[in-house]
Amino acid sequence: MSATHTRVPSLVEHQLPQPVPQAELAACPVNEVFRRVGDKWSMLVVILLGKRSYRYNELHRAVEGISQRMLTRTLRGLETDGLVSRTVHPTVPPSVEYDLTPLGRSLLEPLSALADWAVKHEPHLAAARES
């Protein structure tokens, strides 16, 4: 939704113009959030950091299959969006710790609601895919 639609009380109450202009879609803050949490690794990293802070290598070991490059890109994206904080401790070698910011913590509740919905409706979604 563009800047003119920032006071919309609910997504389902918002009437989208039809056809939806590309500029509207590109400027939509909801799209940006969905792009971030909908990528392969971000949601998992946010959930892990919602439990406790992690050092980089701990986080890398906690997520099977993620490359160092992809973990770095994911953490940088989450940090750029203000969801994750990065703290460098002055040790030799330097120790880096990641944690959720207050904004990142505020994302846990809607992510949990989406996860609960997905688990509840998984049989229906699987049946629909099969037909």
Score class of each variant (00 low, 15 high):
residue 75 L to W: 09
residue 62 A to K: 01
residue 131 S to N: 12
residue 25 L to E: 12
residue 35 R to M: 02
residue 51 K to W: 00
residue 65 G to R: 06
residue 69 R to L: 09
residue 87 T to L: 15
residue 25 L to R: 15
residue 44 L to R: 11
residue 48 L to G: 01
residue 59 L to G: 03
residue 109 E to V: 07
residue 97 E to R: 13
residue 42 S to H: 02
residue 23 A to F: 06
residue 95 S to N: 07
residue 5 H to A: 09
residue 54 Y to I: 02
residue 25 L to N: 14
residue 85 S to K: 12
residue 127 A to Q: 03
residue 36 R to D: 08
residue 130 E to L: 09
residue 5 H to M: 06
residue 26 A to C: 13
residue 110 P to A: 00
residue 52 R to G: 04
residue 1 M to W: 04
residue 31 N to P: 08
residue 35 R to I: 06
residue 17 P to S: 03
residue 41 W to D: 08
residue 9 P to G: 04
residue 103 L to F: 04
residue 64 E to F: 06
residue 38 G to H: 10
residue 101 T to R: 01
residue 56 Y to K: 15
residue 66 I to W: 05
residue 49 L to D: 00
residue 82 G to V: 07
residue 97 E to Y: 03
residue 1 M to G: 05
residue 34 F to Y: 08
residue 5 H to S: 10
residue 49 L to V: 11
residue 103 L to T: 06
residue 18 Q to M: 02
residue 81 D to S: 09
residue 55 R to S: 11
residue 110 P to W: 02
residue 12 V to C: 04
residue 58 E to D: 15
residue 111 L to G: 02
residue 126 A to Q: 04
residue 102 P to V: 01
residue 69 R to W: 11
residue 116 D to Q: 04
residue 110 P to D: 05
residue 41 W to V: 02
residue 131 S to C: 08
residue 35 R to W: 12
residue 56 Y to T: 15
residue 81 D to Y: 04
residue 55 R to T: 13
residue 120 K to C: 00
residue 37 V to D: 03
residue 59 L to H: 05
residue 32 E to R: 13
residue 74 T to L: 07
residue 72 T to Q: 15
